[in-house]
Write a protein that binds this DNA or RNA. Structure first.
Length: 480
DNA sequence: TTTTGAGTTGTTCGA
DNA sequence: GTCGAACAACTCAAA
């Protein structure tokens, strides 16, 4: 062993482009040992949901393929990170290790433990900011505190992003003389079997696809983004969210590409700023989670601990399976189950329905999304659920209760979305499809719909449910 | 320190 | 059918 190796520990930054840990490893001039650890919850972090595991399986293979094109490879090991890292360091004769920071609950404790253990065996550490425009903690108000409201946060954060210079992907990574063993991909157990519920997933994880997706969006989608992003039947979303979740692409790359698109005349500044502000929500949510690690479990506003939530397992199951009797809600929940993703507009409607119409604890919904979304993100999932529930910082006011009929008719005007995901209603006319319970027997017969048989009746009445939710929220103020 | 104004994404009611 | 106001107060940012 002539030259000590450097361990390049990948976590939520599964890319080679603009990854400071990758750059540092390459520039060290040492043999590089790229590593990913499947901790299966052993590190004390929240275990991954099913859809996230599906994604990670493909993303790791993609990263391995990309590394092999650079003359390297990805080691995947299973176990507690501190044990894996110290063992691999010994096997590889490592003298140095690098990684990018992550901020989910438990990550800091894990990294501190790993760092201490590695340093104890003579391995030095460098860590770098993770994949953000502004990493958590870097944007503060006049009194040095973190912002709790998005708009002033983004004003300050936007101004703080200077010139962004991307670090290109390395052409080549130096290999160690002998490679430590890796778990064979067949043993990762990340892809679902018996049953394989992922057959409807229309996604290709990996950095190359993420970059292509970004370019395609700038070409076709950015100019009309502000309008189209709210229409669930249109391909107006970036669909970058799962790539961002695993760091296959970073916000800095989006920033640069979006500025380039405006310079090229492919879109206007307003469209670019809308896109960047959506990206900034992710930064903002991670800032809050880094500061308040209980957000995925505890109400930020403790008054909501007293909300009279209902135990209603059958209604919860109807919501999960897309059988609430409200077409836009059911379409969204079925899109989620089948494809691992749900359109943002419909997420709000479906989440509001669970929390307000059914008065079920938002954590039930948060857990379901965590398990079924390919873009399940510790910060975005927790903060967005708390936002809908009204319990979060800067949250939606409690009296804002989405009307699933109005939302459907407003954003799915031609009902193309409902017809795709709730095909048993497809023959109903546009004017009735978002409210099938108002259809006459003749209309229902003509559309081959039998309410209560081929499609459920509404499990709650909107007006009654709305009143019930307002009363439950009102009780929070009176009872001290 | 005090004060003032603002706050991602909506709905309903009544004129 | 369209429009504006009310919803119920509270926290946070910034002057």
């Amino acid at each position: 062993m002539t030259d000590g190796a450097v361990i390049l520990w990948f976590r939520r930054d599964l890319r080679l482009t603009d990854n400071p840990a990758v750059t540092a490893a390459v520039e060290s001039g040492r043999p590089v040992v790229p590593l990913f650890v499947l901790d299966d919850g052993a590190d004390g972090l929240r275990p991954l949901g099913g859809a996230s595991k599906w994604w990670l399986d493909k993303s790791l293979r993609s990263l391995d393929a990309a590394l092999r094109e650079c003359g390297s490879r990805l080691l995947v090991r299973r176990g507690r990170s501190v044990e894996v890292l110290t063992k691999v360091a010994r096997e590889a004769g490592a003298v140095h290790a690098v990684w990018g920071a992550t901020h989910e609950p438990g990550a800091e404790a894990r990294d501190t433990e790993v760092e201490a253990a590695l340093e104890a065996q003579g391995v030095s550490i460098d860590h770098f900011a993770g994949s953000f425009l502004n990493p958590p903690g870097s944007v503060t108000n006049g009194s040095g505190e973190a912002y709790r409201v998005f708009t002033p946060y983004w004003r300050a954060a936007r101004a703080r992003v200077g010139e962004v210079r991307l670090q290109p992907a390395p052409g080549r990574l130096a290999s160690p003389e002998t490679w430590p063993a890796s778990e064979p991909a067949e043993t990762w157990d990340l892809h679902p079997v018996r049953p394989d519920w992922s057959t409807g997933f229309d996604w290709t994880p990996g950095e190359a696809v993420a970059e292509a997706r970004l370019e395609a969006f700038l070409e076709e989608g950015l100019a009309g983004y502000r309008r189209a992003r709210d229409l669930p039947h249109e391909a107006g979303s970036t669909r970058l969210s799962p790539h961002l979740t695993w760091g296959e692409i970073g916000p800095r790359q989006i920033w640069c590409a979006a500025h380039r698109a405006v310079a090229d005349g492919r879109a206007g500044e307003e469209a670019r700023e809308k896109l960047l502000s959506e990206v900034a929500w992710r930064d903002f949510n991670w800032t809050l989670l880094a500061q308040m690690p209980t957000l995925p479990e505890r109400n930020h506003r403790s008054a909501f601990d007293r909300l009279a939530v209902r135990e209603a397992p059958e209604e919860l199951e109807a919501w999960r399976r897309g059988r609430t009797g409200y077409p836009i809600v059911d379409a969204g929940m079925r899109q989620l189950w089948v494809s691992g993703w749900m359109h943002n507009r419909v997420r709000m409607v479906a989440a509001s329905f669970l929390v307000k119409h059914l008065l079920i604890d938002w954590r039930e919904g948060e857990r379901w999304f965590w398990d079924t979304l390919v873009d399940a993100d510790p910060a975005n999932n927790a903060l967005n659920w708390q936002w809908i529930a009204g319990s979060g910082p800067d949250a939606s006011p409690f009296h804002r209760i989405f009307n699933p009929v109005t939302q459907g008719e407003k954003f799915d005007t031609q009902a193309a979305y409902v017809r795709r995901w709730v095909p048993e209603l497809a023959l109903l006319p546009d004017g009735l499809i978002h409210r099938p319970w108002e259809a006459s027997p003749m209309d229902l017969h003509a559309a081959d719909v039998r309410l209560g048989e081929t499609y459920p009746r509404p499990i709650v009445d909107h007006a009654l449910a709305r009143t019930r939710a307002l009363e439950a929220a009102g009780a929070l103020r009176c009872a001290a």
